[in-house]
Write a protein that binds this DNA or RNA. Sequence first.
DNA 1: CCATAGCGCAACCCATCAGTTGCACATCGA
DNA 2: TCGATGTGCAACTGATGGGTTGCGCTATGG
Lengths: 106, 106
Amino acid sequence: MTGEPVFAALSDATRRTLLTRLADGGPATATQLAAELPITRQAVVKHLEALREARLVTSARAGREVRYTVTPEPLADAVGWIADVGGQWDSRLAALQAQFSSPRAK
Amino acid sequence: MTGEPVFAALSDATRRTLLTRLADGGPATATQLAAELPITRQAVVKHLEALREARLVTSARAGREVRYTVTPEPLADAVGWIADVGGQWDSRLAALQAQFSSPRAK
DNA sequence: CCATAGCGCAACCCATCAGTTGCACATCGA
DNA sequence: TCGATGTGCAACTGATGGGTTGCGCTATGG
């Protein structure tokens, strides 16, 4: 069974904000990200950990800093799942099934 | 702000199962769906309600039955969001931005 | 007309989660 | 060397969510 933890990771608004921030703002540390949000650094760390378990970000230590970077492969998998579900109901989604085939969809 | 309740709806495995079931099995009632799952009808009703609030299903009353049907438009929106976030990092996702443009201009 | 099938509402458990605070450990720079 | 900055670990609280049970209401159909 696939088990799409990506959706669980994207279910939280703060995590989506972090993702977009990392996507078009470039890699950053938890302290930096916390400075731009109304929550503490620890909360950001927990969210980044959740994103890391969903393989949506990777962490790389540089000296005393830990820099987080986007890794969008799971997003493509999520698109594949969506295409498989909605393909027979939506023509646009059906078009995606060719490129984003998820292996375990029947 | 944006608020993508679709991801929250898709974050639960049972809800994803219900969606796929309704997608390739056709419309069904909560009682029917509960018979195919290891949970009670009330639990299924709650999940269907969550899916309905995310506009992923619609409910139509027929006599004493309530029939649920898939409405995949929000799935296309979700694809648009994903394409916008991962587009500059993944070439396949970048290709989606043309078709699934959401008003998320930077 | 009445038993039955299907649904809605409400209260209630229990687990998970977002977020906080406090403190200890590591590293950089002057 | 020593203070400042950055991170890690742990415990705690409040809220949300998945799931259950119980009961009452509304259709259906013989």
